[in-house]
Amino acid sequence: MKHVTLEGISKSYDSTKAVDEVHFNVEQGELFGLIGPDGAGKTTLFRILTTLILPDAGRAFVNGHHVVKDYKKIRKEVGYMPGKFSLYQDLTVEENLSFFASIFNTTIRENYELVKDIYVQIEPFKDRRAGKLSGGMKQKLALCCALIHRPVVLFLDEPTTGVDAVSRREFWEMLKSLKKQGITILVSTPYMDEADLCEKIALIQSGNIMTVDTPERIVSDFPDPVYAVQSDNMSRLLRELRGSDQVKSANAFGEFHHITFSGGTESMDRFLKGLREPMLIKSISPTIEDCFIHLMAAHD
């Protein structure tokens, strides 16, 4: 069953098109990632789906409800964790949680089971004001507040932005266990390496969805074989790669450069023959970031 549906959703701010005819579906119980840089339109889509702003065109449904006509029903059934910390800084941890529970006519006790695994980590600080918590603790509290009314769809807008690699892993572990409870989760992120943690992803850039699919299928749809190369002088190597007609694309990826050739193995042979310095080359499967860069060029 489709839990979230977008049909040609568009939204402009003045003359800037924030999102442009966006279509995609999210199935019930799916962990769906919206992946793209700042300014791509991720937050605009979330705000439309959580009924906080109106689309200019198109239709969207959340749990079967129309985002404009049935906005009151949607607000009861979804949880939303905005990218910017939006809890009451001068209420304590416990006061924030019971406040959000009471807004939805419930209590902490009634839905404790759902937030328990996360809440126990901040419970020792339940009398501390939210404004005095560290980033990681704030994030956990915000997640508890978004869950305390047992939503059927959970929207998380960039929960891991600015968070270090260890805490990011912890956060994704929490999402996995929430998914087991049957909650549909839409999560946005600018980190391409988090794509593989989602069941399905949409890659978004400049208000356009470039592709929607499973991470595996997006990778297998990459049109060319990809190679990782390495030499003693990586910046000189990158210039040489970019200057060659045989090379179709060359991008720095940490300790390697990822490249594709313009004319298959023939191009590769010709390029390798013309090399002036030794270079390590190995065949690899592309990452989501390779796919994103490729799709960006194709959409320009």
Partner: peptide, 30 residues
């Protein structure tokens, strides 16, 4: 942070250029 993958790489080109010009670069990143 939050920059698209192509611009992120262009940004590092600028960092290398500055370093080639003798500017020391002290950088934090996630």
């Amino acid at each position: 942070g939050g920059v698209d993958p192509v611009t992120r790489r262009q940004f590092w080109d600028l960092i290398y250029e500055a370093s080639d010009n003798g500017i020391t670069v002290f950088v934090t990143t996630h």
